[in-house]
């Protein structure tokens, strides 16, 4: 239990007023530990909202530095941050919003040799990466470690997300393995409307908070997709796949894999 100060009660009053949250829910948020992998288009809004909500510990993983072309959508980074490690830039903004948050930074690539070590200390993981090798790695590591996570993907004007809890459909249930490297358009190649990153990232942040507080229905066994051009949102039911290579009845993926990254994906 945390005894909230007068200042905290004021800061979080709009949460505390919610019947489903209250003081108890706010305390859960303040005790929670969330890991954000990728401090880019998705990680930016996720980190900002989680910080504002008062999440006790936020871990941020990113091996990149801020580039001018990031600023169109990665709203946690400012013009003066160009050239700075994204994790440092993110940490500064998180603390500026809410000095109560403890921030752990990991200025490195999330890879098979550190994945399980990094996620171990967290209650909920956010996939905010844009490349398929790491998306599969996050999925496999979370399935193996029994950690819940939120998947997010954006492209051009569209976005998709689902939440995984142990026992529910995972990324590999839907997509067995990464697509061939040459076939993959990412933001850097195909482009994306900046605001889409905000739409998707705030959904991921809301899922993390719902999980922490224990309210509502998470996006489990459902894939939410939207197209901002039409503003049509659609939820597709997905079922856990017994042939899934990692969470199925006879898994073939039993160790973490570093899939090869398409060379063209490594550039900005």
């Amino acid at each position: 239990m945390i005894d909230l100060t007068e200042e905290q009660i004021e800061r979080y009053s709009r949460h505390i007023l919610l019947q489903d949250v209250g003081l108890e829910g706010q305390e859960k948020i303040m005790n929670a530990r969330v890991l954000v992998i990728g401090a880019g288009g998705l990680g930016a809004p996720v980190s900002l909202y989680l910080a504002a909500a008062g999440v006790g510990t936020i871990g941020v993983v990113d091996a990149d530095v801020v580039d001018l072309s990031n600023l169109q959508r990665q709203v946690i980074h400012f013009t003066a941050d160009v050239g700075k490690p994204k994790v440092e830039s993110a940490k500064e903004k998180i603390l500026a919003i809410n000095p109560d948050v403890k921030v752990n930074t990991y200025y490195k690539f999330f890879a098979s040799d550190n994945a399980l070590d990094i996620i171990r200390d967290y209650d909920f993981i956010i996939d905010g990466t844009d490349n398929f090798p790491v998306k599969f790695l996050i999925n496999d590591a979370c399935v193996m470690a029994g950690k819940p996570f939120s998947h997010g993907g954006i492209l051009r004007f569209t976005g998709q997300t689902f939440t995984h809890l142990p026992g529910t459909a995972c990324y590999r249930c839907m997509f067995k393995e990464p697509p061939p490297p040459g076939a993959v358009p990412t933001c850097s190649q195909a482009g994306v409307l900046g605001a889409i990153a905000g739409m998707l990232g705030t959904i991921q942040a809301a899922e993390a908070l719902k999980y922490i507080i224990g309210i509502g229905n998470l996006l489990t066994d459902r894939l939410l997709t939207f197209d901002a051009k039409t503003m049509n949102f659609r939820t597709v039911k997905v079922r856990r796949n017994e042939h899934c290579p990692v969470c199925g009845t006879s898994p073939t993926v039993t160790q973490l894999i570093d899939y090869e990254q398409a060379a063209c994906d490594l550039k900005h």
Binding site: G41, I154, T186, A197, T225, D265
Partner: peptide
């Protein structure tokens, strides 16, 4: 269901 990337290069 389509593969979608997006987010950050980590």
């Amino acid at each position: 269901l389509y593969f979608m990337g997006g987010g950050a290069h980590d």
